[in-house]
Amino acid sequence: MPSARSQPKPGNRQRIIEATVKLMNEHGGAVGTSQIAEFLGISPGNLYYHFRNREEILRELFDGLTRDLDEVLRVQPGESIPVERLVSCYIGGSKVLWRYRFFFASATDFISRDESLAKKYQEFSARSKSYMRLIIQGAVRDAPGLCRPTVRECEHIAETMWVVWVSWPRYSELSMPGQLLGESDIGRGLEQISFLLSPYLDAAYYQKTKRQLHRFVAELQRDKS
């Protein structure tokens, strides 16, 4: 295996992907192909050799987003969900949200312009909510609280969590006009989302989860300052 020092540099295709993520996170979803090419110091023709238009770039980015979140949330029916597993889902989900925050801030615009992306988004949303329901069911089964949610209620909780998760970047931007969004601002949404499960979990289990999430967000805030 080659050492990290000898790893080949990413080709232009991957550089285009990473540049698009960076520019859209910094300047919003209106960034176009000419701005991406200019940022990279390549010709528009070079960019169009790899991607015919901006929509193709966004589709590939979205494929990366779905792979990253699937890896975080993927669980099997009946799988045990100890505190560490639940916390890893929250933190992993926060990191995915931070990397692709531009997509969720501009999702309506993106999917309204691209029918195939809209279909992919609906499938992604349904699959993610299904994973979240399984995670919730496992957690409340392993560490039940005073309230015992039904399967249907777990579906409702999962959908509510999903709505908060996908809406958090836009909410954070609107709450901080004129300020740069930091990873800790995205991470703060973890504590809001985790609170939704508090009535359904054993108090000790929930408090341990809460402490670990608070520690993670506090570390992000220290890094920001």
Rank of each mutant, 00 (worst) to 15 (best):
M1A: 07
S6D: 00
P10R: 00
G11P: 00
G11F: 06
G11H: 00
R13H: 05
R15A: 10
I17L: 06
E18Q: 07
T20S: 02
H27M: 11
G28M: 04
G28L: 08
I36N: 02
Y49K: 11
N53K: 05
D63T: 09
L65N: 01
L65F: 10
R67P: 01
E71D: 14
V75F: 02
Q76T: 15
E79C: 14
S80H: 14
R85S: 04
L86C: 07
S88F: 09
S88H: 05
I91L: 11
G92L: 04
G93R: 01
K95N: 11
K95S: 11
V96C: 10
V96L: 06
L97N: 08
R99M: 13
Y100V: 10
Y100T: 08
D109S: 14
F110M: 12
R113I: 11
E115Y: 15
L117G: 01
A118T: 13
K119Q: 10
E123D: 14
S128D: 04
K129M: 15
G138C: 10
G138A: 07
R141H: 08
E153T: 13
E155T: 09
H156M: 15
T160V: 04
V163A: 08
V166F: 07
S167K: 12
W168C: 01
W168Y: 13
E173R: 09
L174M: 09
S175R: 06
D185G: 02
D185W: 05
E191V: 12
I193K: 04
F195W: 10
L196S: 00
Y206N: 00
Y206E: 05
Y206F: 13
L213I: 13
H214C: 06
V217K: 15
E219W: 09
R222A: 10
